[in-house]
């Protein structure tokens, strides 16, 4: 290992800029009486999401060695606070996702996550835009797009009704790869990330920032969001929104699933999918289920990639320009 790279990858100016933006975030929530909380990075439950890999840690806990997990997001703990009656809460949390390394990914990263009891998804999306305006120091013009409409616009196909074989053929063409073993969602993810994402939030750096929101995801991509039947075209969609700026995914919001039985069923589905992918089973978080059972208020929540937002606000395109020590140097 070379230690010649002891110095931070971000300039001290960038770190000062980062600190100012973080202070602006805290100020924003203080004005709105949203309580800042801190929840554990190290937990006894991991993420069962089949496409997220939690890092494992062994620790001596009450006399025995026990497997603990670095959290992929503070979501479960924050929901337990909501169930305990916390009211609106936010957190600037470190989260960890194994193997996610790239210009816009670092294994350890900073999420800004907040929950608003009583808010519908649209209201939370508006608040999220206001928060970003505060961080950028300029107004935002937001366009909202349905997931389905974006596929029709950029790929001329219907993500809800197209045959999986047709999606796989398009994905193979776009990715220059064999997609025979792709699931339907793999195909959609490839097409979305390669063709649609680069078109979202195109911005030439004017006085108003141009962001795009994507809504009404396929129900299979609901994760921890509620599913609902779309009133317009009758398909089942996930009550989610995502915000994009300059082709970068910035925030992911849910109308949060609060039903304990449904949550338990989704954990089982996730673990079944993990087994199919040859990934280890992760014990689902029983305390989260107990909290939902006790009753979590109806709420919407959003996780925003704070490193990414600060990166773009600083006019950079690599995360390591705004993170002092990315994992390779940590």
């Amino acid at each position: 290992m070379s230690v010649a790279d002891w110095a931070p990858t971000a300039s001290l100016d960038a770190l000062r800029f980062r600190a100012e933006r973080m202070a602006a975030v805290r100020q924003f929530f203080a004005e709105r009486q949203v309580l800042e909380v801190e929840t554990p990075v190290l937990g006894q439950g991991g993420s069962v999401d089949p496409l997220l890999d939690s890092l494992q840690v062994e620790a001596r806990l009450s006399g025995q060695r026990q497997r603990l997990w670095l959290q992929t997001s503070p979501e479960f703990h924050m929901k337990r606070l909501l169930a305990a009656g916390s009211g609106p809460i936010f957190q600037i949390a470190h989260a960890f996702r194994d193997a996610e390394v790239g210009q816009r990914h670092n294994i350890e990263f900073t999420l800004l996550e907040w929950y608003q009891p009583g808010y519908g998804l649209d209201l939370l999306r508006e608040e999220c835009v206001e928060l970003i305006e505060r961080v950028l120091g300029k107004p935002i013009s937001l366009s909202v797009h349905r997931y389905r409409a974006l596929f029709e616009q950029w790929l001329e196909l219907d993500p809800f009704t197209a045959e999986t074989s047709h999606l796989a053929a398009r994905a193979a063409e776009v990715g220059g790869m064999d997609t025979a073993d792709f699931s339907r969602d793999d195909c959609l993810d490839l097409l979305f990330s390669h063709v649609i994402e680069p078109q979202l939030g195109k911005d030439s750096g004017g006085a108003v920032a141009l962001l795009d929101a994507v809504v009404d995801y396929p129900a299979s991509q609901a994760a921890l969001a509620k599913r609902r039947r779309d009133p317009v075209d009758g398909v089942e969609v996930a009550a989610r929104f995502e915000l994009y700026w300059q082709g970068v995914e910035l925030a992911n919001g849910y109308d949060e699933l609060a039903d304990a039985a449904e949550q338990a069923a989704r954990f089982e589905e996730d673990n079944a999918q993990r087994a199919q992918l040859g990934k280890p089973r992760v014990d689902s978080d029983q305390r989260l289920l107990a909290a939902l059972e006790a009753g979590m208020p109806a709420c919407s929540g959003v996780a925003l990639g704070l490193d990414r937002l600060i990166m773009l606000a600083a006019g950079e395109c690599r995360l390591d320009k705004v993170i002092a020590f990315p994992t390779e140097r940590a």
Partner: peptide
């Protein structure tokens, strides 16, 4: 080698 991953979705390397 570019790592691409929707927050909730399959990860790819382009």
């Amino acid at each position: 080698n570019e790592f691409v991953k929707p927050g909730k979705g399959q990860a790819f390397n382009r």
